[in-house]
């Protein structure tokens, strides 16, 4: 029920904005976000016709970078397993 989806702002119309969800354009209220914080091309989190929050690209990039670190660690585990012939995880 709390299902919300990322949507990209295409254009503004007062308190409303046209947002693209995948290939579909939908009309959503942006009244819960300060207008000066939004520009065309930004992603927002959409729920029942309302944008709940701007999605922070900066934070998203930081999270994804962390996943890279997990991959590097996993590779080192793989190498150690190969070297020692023992399963670690």
């Amino acid at each position: 029920m709390c299902l919300s989806v990322p949507a990209q702002i295409v254009s503004f119309d007062g308190d409303m904005a046209q947002c693209a969800v995948g290939g579909v354009i939908t009309h959503a209220s942006i009244q819960m976000i300060a207008h000066e914080d939004l520009k065309i091309g930004d992603f927002v989190l959409l729920h029942t016709g309302f944008a709940l929050q701007k999605i922070s690209e900066e934070e998203a990039v930081a999270t994804l970078a962390l996943f890279e670190e997990f991959e590097t660690f996993n590779q080192s585990l793989d190498e150690e397993e190969k070297k020692t012939g023992q399963r670690i995880v």
């Binding site: 709940l52 929050q53 922070s56 999270t63």
Partner: peptide, 18 residues
């Protein structure tokens, strides 16, 4: 907070006011 691309510690003030 893991979901920090949308969750801020203070939440959404405008929505909370509503």
């Amino acid at each position: 907070i893991q979901y920090n691309r949308v969750v801020r510690p203070e939440g959404n003030i405008k929505a909370l006011e509503l």
